[in-house]
């Protein structure tokens, strides 16, 4: 009994302060979380707008699609439909891949028929400045415009429809290409199954 009393005598301030600070954080979070979420959406829309200039509106799809993320965990992916006067011009989703002991987040845009890639931007990455972060450069990104959506082909000759890695940033650029391939094949398959887009012409 004495020891319990002693315990409270010594630490009541700590306990009271913990509750008070917890409350303070909770209130701040409740007040600001809506705005933080709004910021994230606004950023996604700006980036997506740069990738699909013809689109005027981005609406999130009602149902998410189930895919396997890089690393093997199941993930529910939220797709956005990009429309221009009610006509679908493309699809937007975010992809996460691991780079150089690091996480790379991409915003990917696919054309309306899901046949070719419209481009991607890096949402967040921590790659080494001057080396890995060259994946943000236009020279690397522009080669992805119009390549067939699906398993991407890496080549060194730069033939049309294939992509080239950056020497000196091999890990980071390969990671981007693999992440894109990984997501594109799954997204395409799922979307075709759900009947949201037509099947490939060949099949």
């Amino acid at each position: 009994m004495r020891s319990i009393k002693h315990f409270f005598e010594q630490s009541w301030l700590l306990i009271v302060a913990s509750f008070f600070f917890g409350l303070l954080i909770a209130v701040t979070n409740a007040a600001l979380s809506a705005r933080i979420a709004w910021n994230a959406t606004a950023k996604l829309n700006t980036l997506a707008g740069g990738l699909l200039p013809s689109a005027t509106k981005f609406t999130p799809l009602d149902e998410t699609i189930d895919i396997v993320a890089r690393g093997g965990k199941p993930q529910a992916l939220q797709l956005y439909r990009a429309t221009d006067n009610g006509e679908t011009v493309g699809w937007i989703f975010t992809a996460v891949g691991s780079g150089f002991a690091d996480k790379i987040e991409l915003v990917v845009a696919v054309n309306g028929d899901l046949q070719s890639l419209a481009g991607f931007v890096i949402l967040a990455s921590n790659e080494t400045p001057g080396f890995g972060d060259r994946i943000k450069e236009d020279g690397f990104r522009n080669q992805f415009k119009g390549v067939p959506a699906g398993e991407l082909v890496i080549s060194n000759s730069g033939e049309p429809g294939t992509v080239v890695t950056i020497s000196g940033a091999t890990v980071s650029s390969t990671a981007v290409i693999e992440t894109l391939s990984h997501y594109l094949t799954q997204v395409k398959e799922q979307m075709q199954q759900k009947g949201l887009v037509d099947h490939d012409d060949e099949s």
Binding site: G71, V96, D102, K103
Partner: peptide
């Protein structure tokens, strides 16, 4: 957390 460490082993090694 920022690097998106996936497994405990990776966290220990890093």
């Amino acid at each position: 957390n920022l690097w998106g460490t996936e497994s405990l082993l990776e966290a220990v090694v890093l």
